[in-house]
């Protein structure tokens, strides 16, 4: 799954660009980051802790910048090794455009995982990736004085509606919320973490909120 979002930052584009290349800002922005070191002009070394579903791991990895086009944007891609927990790969295309009162930052992220993360955490990947990318850009835009582009409106009633109409009690339609393409089984409730009947609606809510927030 790809995720995308937009942030309005009340700072000139050059400043935002500089921050995007500042290891200190990146470290503060990457959720769970323990260290970010610049090892080359276009490469950082990072250590971050992450929890995907029931799997916790400390990822060590390299973050590389490609398609660098100052100050319009770059692609930030990383591959982290979580040891026995497996690996995570991901990339985000970040673009900066001048907008009224500052800069509009837009991103598109996709992520992949392997090993135990995929074995046990598979169902949690999309939600975790979406939460982490949101956290990253939230942190980043706050550090640079910006805020998320939000549409006004009361979201709570909307979610209640979705719950009532989107997930009827006898829903056979759970395939649509299965990230693996494997049908969820309604009585599956043992295992290492929450039952799909608990977290699957949560995932939907998260996605609705995400869509809501970024104003699609």
């Amino acid at each position: 799954m790809e995720m995308s979002g937009e942030y309005r930052i009340p700072a000139p584009r050059e400043e935002v660009w500089a921050a995007l290349n500042d290891p200190e800002v990146l470290q503060k922005s990457i959720p769970g980051a323990e260290s970010v070191n610049k090892i080359a002009d276009d490469e950082f070394e990072a250590v971050a802790k992450a929890k995907v579903g029931p799997v916790s791991a400390r990822f060590k990895g390299k973050v590389k910048l490609t398609d660098i086009d100052p100050p319009n944007g770059y692609t930030i891609s990383g591959e982290g090794n979580g040891g026995a927990a497996g690996f995570a790969k991901g990339s985000a295309r970040v673009t900066l455009t001048e907008a009224e009162g500052g800069t509009l930052l837009a991103y598109t992220v996709n992520a992949q995982v392997g090993g135990k993360l995929a074995q046990i955490g598979q169902r949690f990947i999309d939600s975790t990736a979406s939460r982490m990318s949101q956290e990253f850009f939230d942190n980043f835009s706050q550090l640079t004085g910006g805020s998320r582009v939000e549409a006004a409106g009361a979201e709570t009633p909307e979610i209640v509606d979705e719950m009532e109409h989107g997930i009827p009690t006898k829903s056979p339609d759970y395939d649509s919320i299965s990230p693996t393409g494997v049908p969820l089984v309604p009585d599956e409730e043992a295992g290492m973490s929450l039952s799909p009947w608990v977290w699957a609606p949560l995932l939907i809510i998260a996605l609705i909120l995400l869509v809501w927030f970024i104003g699609f």
């Binding site: 392997g114 995929a118 074995q119 046990i120 598979q122 494997v182 599956e188 290492m192 799909p196």
Partner: peptide, 10 residues
């Protein structure tokens, strides 16, 4: 080639 039914959750 990741095993996506690797626990009793799946």
């Amino acid at each position: 080639g990741q095993l996506v039914t690797g626990s009793y959750m799946d």
